[in-house]
Design a protein around this nucleic acid. Structure first.
Lengths: 113, 113
DNA sequence: CAGTAGCACAACTATCTAGTTGTGCAGTTG
DNA sequence: CAACTGCACAACTAGATAGTTGTGCTACTG
């Protein structure tokens, strides 16, 4: 376990902010789509059936946090995942939820027996 | 990589919600304190210099999400971490931030040379 | 070059939620 | 038993932010 203890306040804020950034369904959807590879705002707009301004806004947040990278190509801007560890965090959440589910299942099994 | 792709919408919402729950500094602080072991609302209130109602409220959210467990002891209620994977998520964030920092450092090194 | 496409920024609004104030119930104690 | 402690719930407010509307700049094209 490499997590400092007690957590310094600055780190608490950083960690919390990071979670808040990815605690938004639209941003997770964007990241999920970007797993297929680099995409333009326009492509993402169509893929997610959202407005261009909205997609651009969310991508701005992800870019500001260093989670996605961006490059220009003519009048298009292409985004790609820059920080894969964010997907690992999603995996971690899924793992944790799975664990909780199976614990619940064990409980329910105990009840029905 | 065990993360489903594409992510089902229900899973997107679950993941996002999970991140939002821990995207709150006070909740991270509570979890950090609970790393020392089980504690009552009163103890947590004093440790974090917050109001009892506020602490109780946040603990309620964490408990609802299965992140902390709770047991009664007389007129005291004791909380403990029930889902350690949440701390692993924090570690993951720290690891990711560290990676970003060192990439930035590499960039700055390149500039100063 | 005029018109079009692509994108990010500004301004606005509705919604959500953290923090606060107030309250009442359960448990403890003298 | 009355007074106190501990805690969770309700109600309220201020602030943050997602989504939307509007806009203007850059790049492309016929």
């Amino acid at each position: 376990m490499s997590l400092p203890h007690p957590l310094p306040e600055a780190l608490v804020e950083l960690i919390a902010q990071r979670f808040r950034i990815i605690g938004e369904p639209m941003r997770i959807r964007l990241l999920d789509r970007l797993r297929d590879g680099e995409a333009s705002v326009h492509e993402l707009t169509e893929a997610l059936d959202a407005s261009q301004q909205n997609v651009s806004k969310h991508l701005g947040v992800l870019h500001g946090a260093g989670i996605v990278g961006r490059r220009k190509d003519g009048n298009r801007v292409l985004y790609a995942i820059a920080d894969e560890s964010v997907l690992e965090l999603c995996e971690g959440v899924c793992g944790g939820l799975q664990r909780q589910l199976s614990e619940l299942n064990d409980l329910l099994d105990g009840v029905t027996r």
